Simulated assay, not measured.
Amino acid sequence: MIQHQLIEACRRNDRKAQLKLYEKYSQGMYYVALRFMKNEHDAEEAMQEGFIQAFTKLHQFTGEVTFGAWLKRIVINKSIDMLKARKLDLVALDEHRVAKVEEDNNWDVADSVTINQVKEAIAKLPERYKYPVMLFLIEGYDHEEISEILNITAVSSRTLVHRGKRKLQEHLKAYYNGTGS
């Protein structure tokens, strides 16, 4: 069954089709949730809740993006909602104090730094930087999308990502200098 037919069957509440779609995407969505949730149980819960919401709102899927991208956004939103519920509030910056942030694509980090070291460094960032940086660098969202997901402005997204990348870079330089763990 091709994906379009599978999605149409899911819209008709076909449980077998829903199971097939779940089996196709559950592992990837679990790892998306795990990047936010820090433990397997919470990641599983966020992923499951994301699927429930996706199946409930499948009528809103227009096909403008791939189903996987649409589902990924739901799982990320569900993960962030769960974190917010635990009082890990994301701090929006005061728009009046935000200086214009230029895109900083200059990464002076050694080529020997691994993706796992980058992920570990992101996990150590303060909460207000961690999620915008993760959405930008790991998930590939732009500032408009991040602003919608985190309910902040695009200017705040740019600022948080810029500052978070600086802190991330500082931490990763320790690996370059041989003092990283």
Rank of each mutant, 00 (worst) to 15 (best):
D42S: 12
R86A: 09
N116M: 10
Q53E: 03
W70D: 08
L58H: 12
F51S: 03
H4E: 11
G164I: 14
E139H: 08
R11E: 00
N106Y: 09
R128A: 08
P126S: 11
N77I: 05
I146C: 08
T66F: 08
L150N: 10
V101P: 00
R35F: 11
L58P: 02
V32K: 02
V32I: 15
T62E: 03
Y141W: 07
Y176G: 06
N13Y: 05
D14K: 07
E64L: 05
R158G: 15
I149M: 07
G180F: 14
S26Q: 14
N105Q: 07
R97E: 01
S26E: 12
V161R: 09
T159W: 02
A123N: 11
I52G: 01
D42M: 06
R163Y: 08
H4N: 12
P126C: 13
G63V: 03
A54C: 09
S156C: 06
M82Q: 06
Y22N: 13
F51G: 04
F61Q: 13
L93H: 06
Q169L: 11
M82F: 01
P132M: 01
M82S: 04
N105P: 03
G164M: 09
A99G: 14
Q27D: 12
V133N: 01
S112K: 08
L150E: 13
K57S: 11
F67Q: 05
R166C: 07
T62S: 10
M1N: 14
L150H: 04
D81A: 13
T114Y: 12
Y31L: 00
H162T: 13
A17R: 02
Y129T: 01
I74M: 10
S79C: 08
G180Q: 07
V91P: 07
N116G: 02
K24D: 00
Q18F: 02
H4K: 15
H41Q: 13
R97W: 03
Q169F: 06
A99Y: 12
E170H: 14
Q117D: 01
L34Q: 02
T114E: 07
D108N: 14
G178E: 04
E95F: 04
T66L: 06
Y131G: 11
E144M: 06
F51D: 00
F55H: 06
Q117T: 09
W70P: 01
L125A: 09
R12S: 13
M29D: 12
L172Y: 07
E23A: 05
Q117Y: 07
D89I: 05
Y131S: 08
D111P: 02
A121S: 08
R158P: 04
L93C: 08
L90P: 00
I52K: 15
H143D: 13
R86L: 11
M37R: 10
K87H: 04
V32E: 13
G140M: 03
K24E: 01
G140P: 03
F136G: 02
M134I: 14
G68W: 01
V32P: 08
P132Y: 00
